[in-house]
Design a protein around this nucleic acid. Structure first.
Lengths: 230, 230
DNA sequence: CGTGGAAAGTAAGCGGTGATTACATTGGCA
DNA sequence: TGCCAATGTAATCACCGCTTACTTTCCACG
């Protein structure tokens, strides 16, 4: 039996019976549902695609698998945005970290459906899946490297790099979640551009995280300013 | 007969038929379920209390109402901890804000069940309920006041107080969520005391948020031009 | 060709869950 | 004492995740 049936990816429904690209259609439908604020509903997704309630199980072992697939797609988009942003930013660690944070916020606030999908799949075991580890490890490793290099240059707050890493991710993650949960509006910040607000908040955080100007006079910094910078 | 048989909070089951304090028992059961990591299950909660599946609906209109009640209880505990911490801390705005953040983190990391309940109820409309607004407004107002006063004293980062408020809450919220979602362990920080790690991360954030030494000369902040807001 | 086998979808149904409704039991109070 | 409101039960519905058995379609291979 041929394990590799190698069926060309049909662009349209292959027939009235066989959908032809049900898997992708289900992912898209799930994403629409997530974007609508509701939690994903397998039967409803099937309904949106015009297929029977049992059909999704031909492509996904269970609901979690569909959510994981959505999260994979989300992850790919996220990584693409991060990589693009890093390539366009100056190479100094502080600039790279800033660009990474902005890319994260742009992603979370610009496409809440994706961010929600991300968070939602994370509440299941997705973060422990092989795909996630492989796909995300490079980004996280890059952040780790930037933190360490930034610390050596005096651009980044000192301390355990893992803790600095944790602090940075907690901040952008919390900001994204607060946005999708409606806290921006609750704080009276609904009228303004969410991304602009988030970047201002990021600036508040960065004033401690990033120290790109070593011209600060000695004695004004609580911690030993070994600031030697270009 | 029992003078305390009147409808308020009975200390024991009033009879085999009437539970007597079913409402409180259901809240406790829901909290236990949340603490166990699972999401709340009305029938299971009823089962734990030893009552029929329909009984909870005598006390809660729907599942969301039970979660809201759990969140109310959580909120009361949270406020108590915050108030206590504020009373024990120095009166300087930076110290008060720090104490508030530590109390938040102690609450989120010390009793994950409560924090999860809080976040879970927040994903429904609980944050827009009258109780929440009334109960939480004072805490939020206190934080706003501390931020403004701290800014006047030069202890707190400048900028729109609402944005500073947002940044502070996003940080501790993100940290709490990352903890209950297992990211501490994923970052290799599982072995250490979570609260100690969180406080170190908080220090990273505070180095920008809190400026106990306002003697920094003008012009050293690379974003000084953007700090103009109402 | 044309045919067999696998992929992909359908139909039917199970168990669990939130929610509603009608009924039963209890205890306080006029 | 007898009424009545509060409280709990029983039965039931609709929906959802998931499984199983069956049907339809497509494709590789002789």
């Amino acid at each position: 039996m041929s394990a590799e049936r190698r069926r060309p990816i049909a662009k349209k429904p292959a027939s009235a019976y066989h959908h032809g690209r049900l898997r992708e259609a289900l992912i898209a439908a799930a994403l629409r549902l997530i974007g609508g604020g509701e939690d994903v509903n397998l039967r409803e997704a099937a309904r949106l695609v015009g297929v029977s309630p049992g059909a999704p199980f031909r492509h996904f072992r269970d609901k979690a698998a569909l959510l994981a697939a959505v999260a994979e797609e989300t992850m790919r988009r996220f990584r693409h945005e991060v990589v693009t942003a890093l390539g366009a930013a100056p190479s100094a660690p502080s600039s790279q970290i800033h660009a990474m944070a902005v890319a994260y916020l742009r992603f979370a606030l610009g496409e809440p459906a994706y961010f929600r999908a991300f968070a939602q799949a994370g509440e299941l075991g997705f973060f422990d899946s092989d795909f996630f580890k492989k796909e995300n490890q490079e980004t996280l490793d890059a952040l780790d490297g930037l933190i360490v290099e930034g610390q050596q240059r005096g651009e980044v707050a000192p301390g355990d790099p893992r803790v600095v890493h944790l602090a940075a991710r907690a901040f952008v993650y919390g900001l994204g979640r607060m946005y999708v949960e409606g806290h921006f509006a609750r704080l009276g910040l609904g009228g303004e551009s969410p991304l602009a607000v988030a970047e201002q908040a990021l600036a508040v955080f960065e004033r401690g995280l990033l120290r790109s100007e070593p011209s600060r006079p000695p004695g004004t910094s609580r911690r030993s300013a070994k600031d030697k910078l270009p």
